[in-house]
Design a protein around this nucleic acid. Structure first.
Lengths: 129, 129
DNA sequence: TTGATTGTTTGACATATGTCAAACTATAAA
DNA sequence: TTTATAGTTTGACATATGTCAAACAATCAA
């Protein structure tokens, strides 16, 4: 087994680990949620919420929320940006859809090389496990 | 936030946790892999491998492999069955595709109520977070 | 500048996790 | 029955993780 492959699996495991804590997952799901029941929604409409709002009614300390957001950011599952006193968060669609593709039978590099390879290269890459 | 919702998130977090360890994820990916590059493959062709084969060249103790498989089974990501001296493993497609659907923007219950609700009920359920 | 809001960092600690080794169980073959 | 093969369970232990509290930093309003 190549070291490169090991690294790829390791990186992917970190993404899953970021979603493995109930509180952290809850925060993430609030960002993933998009349209209210029955309505259409543009797939480009990114939901952005501030940190305080995300932790609200989860009954955990603000510092813990902050810690969780850092993990999600490290995994590239979300992105953040300061807006005045607040810090806005939204999901990184590319990473999330890459994950979905992998679980649907897509190849691993589709997720991991998201910033380097072209779409065509990704579509033809079938180096599965 | 309802207790029911909390339970659902908790269960989902366990599924992700099962994929959060590099070795365990590697084992899982070997089961997910299906067709060699460039070939078509029936989506119903379940890959089944025995425990020993799965741990091969991962350089971890057989007892550790066994432990990891138990976690994957607990998360309903794989299924197992004894065949003579061996124990065969294959992925639980329903759980995996449910995960993929969730990450593609589907609702949470699609994954979690996989054994109870009908397909139609699932398609109409938009109780997002 | 002072005070109020929002969020982050650090330190501490209890709990969970991954791993191996050794003992054990189940099946098949001789 | 005895032996070999395949996998599981248990015990032990080092490391990682989640959480809170307290101190800190950044921005805005008065």
């Amino acid at each position: 087994m190549s070291n490169n492959q090991k690294d790829e699996v390791h990186r992917l495991a970190e993404v899953f680990k970021a979603l493995s804590n109930p509180n952290r997952l809850h925060i993430f799901l609030r960002l993933v949620s998009c349209c209210p029941p029955g309505t259409k929604c543009s797939s480009d409409a990114a939901i952005r919420r501030c940190v305080g709002e995300l932790g609200r009614d989860l009954e955990i300390d603000p510092s813990t929320v902050s810690h969780h957001l850092k993990e999600l950011r490290r995994a590239e599952l979300i992105r953040v940006e300061r807006r005045g006193k607040n810090i806005l968060c939204w999901v990184d669609r590319e990473t999330v859809l890459g994950l979905a593709n992998l679980l649907s039978g897509g190849s691993l590099p589709t997720l991991l090389e998201k910033e380097t390879g072209s779409m065509e290269e990704k579509a033809n890459d079938r180096s599965n496990f």
